[in-house]
Design a protein around this nucleic acid. Structure first.
Lengths: 213, 213, 213, 213
DNA sequence: CCCTAAGCGAGACGGTACGTCAGGTCTTCGG
DNA sequence: CCGAAGACCTGACGTACCGTCTCGCTTAGGG
């Protein structure tokens, strides 16, 4: 984030807020046109009608800039009530797939993840800006399913969290892997088969410690 | 592959096979030391004791070179008979996780996948060299489980293939996502929980069309 | 010249004038050490403590750079009054010979001339920067000789110019040819013999159209 | 020269004499098309339908090859009897100018001379192959003029030689300088004016020591 | 109402790596 | 042993971006 800490900055000309928006927009546009590896700071600056110095005053480099530019796209994901847990899961799978069809997300996500394997601060930034924010979808879906009586309420918070993380990794991982690694489409058929597998497993998975209870 | 088509090349000095091996080894070493983004063709050439031109004569660029250099690492994955389907799955999950702990695979895999989102020939290369070759593990595991009577034999080849692909994406996707995106460790606990979820789902998933049969 | 047109460049960081001087000096030094054909842009940049890009921002290539670096050396030539036309001619011949003894001029002059046979813009640059500037010596010498009464005043300006050009080509050409092509020394004896030949011819040459007047 | 010393080479496959001719021809062609600096050994080899190895087996490098390729062109110069010394001089001037109009000579001559300023063996090669061979023209012209009674016979051989060298440098130098440095045409007018200057000077110049004799 | 501190565009700067090209050497095969 | 083919190492090329650094010019707020 280009956090304008109100404590730090006091005097002098304030930073242009219009520039921030223009830069992020330009970054996404450049990402679409050129892809991650050919995107350059100079090109983004030119598209945004801004000097390179202005970019560097706000972001440390390409990685940070792209994470911020792309993060907002993932906030589009929503979980409207589709009536059943299965429908909700299938819906979010297709929604996520649609997001990954867009070139700016498809190329940026993997690239920044790759970069983050060598840069811890970048990894943290990605987790905070992108990944953790989407776990809300799992939590919301579970809560709703529990209200419907489709899922039991897990009393142990630690187990509940662990399970939510697992679900998240399985859903997101499977979709990303199919689309970007296997390079096969995520269509309704696939989503239905995947949902069936997940929910069946889920029934048992959440009952893991049931016998002992 | 730098396939030495025996039909094409006839006259002149033949390409040094020693160079090929040295270059791939140097690529992996450079990947460990520098990571994907800082790896340069010049550095690889220097480590391999080879001229840059020799690299470019064999590979079109960094992407192609790294795919070839890393592909062989994935062939290490094996599926020894651990006595049950659950044990086999858990074993391969942990084995895959160990592979992704290694810096050369962790950084390279995501990077080339990211690059492949803009380059179809690269995508094909990755599929042929890396992805499709590992599907053998799923097929072998299923076959073994069927021999043990843990899984029914699916008579429809199309359905069987579709399911195998799904399993592959779920396993590989979940492991990769947890390790590289969520940045959480894949330990025995996680592997056990994941395996339980998968196999439970699998029981139902493969019975998808059973009622209708 | 890397003329900093005051009209063109307004905004942005101004070019370092120190760099210009350092580069030209480094070029001459490199020319002495390596000669024309082994001189490289990279070496000049390194000697000048400057990036290669800075060179290319100011000069299109090796040829242009060397012309500018060497041009100033030719401005050293002077024509002090030695009392008679013969002494003046002989003096400038020896002075020019001394200039061509220096490795940076000897190698650079022929090389850029050779290059200019295929590049008109380079030819123009050489003429403007080097050749035409030295015609002043011929003009000054003639004027002085006329004041002394050693030479008649040619009333027709066209004829006067044509003769001056001829003299210039004969002097410069003979000296260059003897030193660089024939590879024989230009010593006092040779200079005296050449001067005698030239001045005798000149007496007749300038009277070319006298009979008709 | 690629002297095929009959003593040295005995056994094995003899060198192709056709190759020699083809290479020199190809060198001249390449020189016309590309100029000195862009001419490459590889290109010459390709044009001649010959392997690069074959070139290097016969010539040490670009310089030596070009000198040999061009030297023969200068042998075209002849001195037909035009009836008077003035006509002979003017004729050879125009003939030499015509030779320097041809791109292969114009560019090659200066280039190899430039190169020779740093390479003594090349300088020797040029002198032997090109320069000294043309002095025959001066000697022949003088002899003829003496037979006609236009020039006195110089009894001192040393003086005679010194004068011949001077004449040679003045003629060749002036023509080369005018064409390649001043970049002005050598036409009939210029040739006539130059000849007049030279011969007038010559009359006096050769009488240098007459008064004392 | 100016003063001052920061932001801003422009663009030059020292660098690093790029991918290509030519030079000159070597290694193979066939004649 | 010659010659073609072509792979090899070396080193320079000219370009593209990097991230930093001047410049001269806004553009606010605080005195």
């Amino acid at each position: 984030m280009s956090s304008t800490d109100p404590q730090t900055a006091r005097t002098g000309r304030p930073r242009s807020t219009a520039a921030d928006a223009a830069i992020l927009e330009a970054t996404r546009a450049s990402l679409v046109d050129l892809g991650w590896s050919k995107l350059t700071m100079g090109d983004v600056a030119a598209r945004a009608g801004v000097a390179k110095t202005t970019l560097y005053r706000r972001w440390a480099g390409k990685n940070e800039l792209v994470v911020d530019a792309v993060a907002v796209l993932f906030d589009e994901l929503e979980l409207p009530d589709r009536g059943s847990l299965a429908a909700d899961v299938q819906g979010v799978v297709l929604q996520f797939a649609a997001l990954l069809e867009r070139p700016e997300t498809r190329t940026a996500l993997m690239a920044v993840v790759a970069e983050s394997t060598r840069d811890d601060s970048l990894r943290v930034r990605i987790r905070d800006s992108i990944v953790d924010r989407q776990k809300r979808l799992v939590l919301e879906g579970r809560q709703r399913a529990q209200r419907r009586g489709e899922l039991p309420v897990e009393p142990d918070a630690v187990v509940a969290d662990r399970t939510a993380d697992l679900i998240f990794d399985v859903i997101a991982g499977a979709v990303v892997h199919r689309m970007l690694v296997s390079a096969e489409p995520v269509d309704t058929d696939w989503a239905r088969q995947f949902t069936l597998l997940l929910l069946s497993g889920l029934g048992a998975g959440t009952m893991e410690r049931r016998p002992g209870s």
